[in-house]
């Protein structure tokens, strides 16, 4: 039987589950969902009208993944990262990636201390709970790979000495789809390290009006109230990893990813890392919906942000302006949802 450790004392009591449901895990899932929604609502006070993007970013946080945001300037990419940090009372750093940025500028360096007659490690900006890697594609591949190594290993090794990064640890990388001159696009192997790739997009008309109205008197990012501590987030992460997944859902995930590997429109399908990422994200989404079990809806809803950036189209498909999301949509529409346990 799965053990559930997560307890959130500060959260409001969740609604009692229906009589046919198991009480303990369901109540914990309810508390998770309440805290998740509270975080999302707090962040949305700053990022107006982008609830979906906010929730996806939070799913990344609780799934211990990393987020790649691709969008034009001025759509709130940086604000999203800062507001997440502010809402969870976590330490955050920003690194502006430029062509001359060195790996040690991110990870930190060992400097010889004359007084103590030994090398001391000076942590780089990557030692924070939330790291905003702005315009990641402007740095050299060497620097990019240094960050990506930290993302995967969750530690920095300098002079054979490991230095773990704090928990939770979320990298929000941004890249600009226009003005690509002088950039180093991330190769597919490195794109695969990001749990999700999302686009914030322009706000709707009403949301943008709200943004304008809120500028002089609205809630400033610096004054955003933290609604969770970093330790609470770590507990929620632990709870999410214990969300139950039934065998048919495993089969469904494998069927979806398997279909991407045989699609005639795709040169490269989703890797097993993609399947794992989809599973982790689906667990968080289930908990965020107040469930202690994953349903196919969770998988289906996250398939495009989690899988699409890992796919490579065939040249023929690209010529026909077919997108990876469209191919994935076709696969989702053609893969039967498990009907029996």
């Amino acid at each position: 039987m799965t053990q559930y450790h997560y307890q959130d004392q500060s959260a409001q009591p969740a609604q009692p589950p229906p009589a046919y449901q198991q009480q303990g895990p369901q109540q914990l899932a309810g508390q998770f969902a309440q805290r998740f929604q509270m975080l999302a609502a707090t962040i949305e006070q700053v990022i107006r009208g982008k609830r979906e993007a906010v929730e996806l970013a939070l799913i990344c946080l609780f799934a211990e993944g990393h987020l790649l945001v691709e969008d034009v300037p001025g759509t709130g990419k940086t604000t999203l990262a800062r507001s997440i940090a502010a809402a969870v009372d976590a330490e955050w750093r920003r690194v502006q990636f430029t062509p001359d940025l060195l790996p040690s500028d991110i990870t930190g360096v060992s400097i010889f201390n004359q007084a103590h007659q030994k090398f001391e490690f000076h942590e780089g900006p990557v030692f924070a709970n939330i790291v905003l890697a702005d315009e990641i594609n402007r740095a050299s591949p060497k620097t990019q790979s240094a960050l990506l190594e930290v993302m995967e290993e969750r530690r920095v090794t300098v002079d054979a000495e490991p230095h773990p990064v704090p928990r939770p640890f979320l990298v929000v990388a941004t890249q600009n789809p226009v003005d690509m001159d002088g950039t180093y696009p991330l190769p597919e192997a490195q794109l695969d390290r990001f749990l999700m790739k999302i686009s914030v997009g322009y706000p709707g008309h009403a949301a943008e009006v709200e943004v304008l109205k809120g500028v002089p008197t609205g809630l400033q990012l610096d004054r955003l109230q933290a609604v969770a501590r970093a330790s609470d987030v770590a507990g929620m992460i632990d709870f999410a990893t214990r969300v139950h997944v039934a065998d048919p859902v495993y089969d469904y995930i494998v069927a979806l990813c398997g279909a991407t590997r045989t699609s005639p429109h795709l040169r490269l399908g989703a890797s097993p890392r993609g399947s794992l990422a989809l599973l982790r994200a689906a667990r968080v989404k289930a908990a965020a919906a107040g469930r202690h079990y994953v349903v196919p809806e969770d998988v289906k809803a996250l398939a495009v942000p989690v899988i699409a950036h890992r796919l490579i189209l065939t040249p023929e498909a690209e010529l026909r302006d077919v997108t990876a999301a469209a191919v994935l949509g076709e696969i989702l529409a053609g893969t039967p949802v498990p009907q029996a346990a």
Partner: peptide, 14 residues
């Protein structure tokens, strides 16, 4: 969904 995907099975009431 609960009966199909939750760890505990369905009940007579469900």
């Amino acid at each position: 969904n609960y009966v199909r995907y939750a760890p505990d099975g369905g009940t007579e009431e469900a």
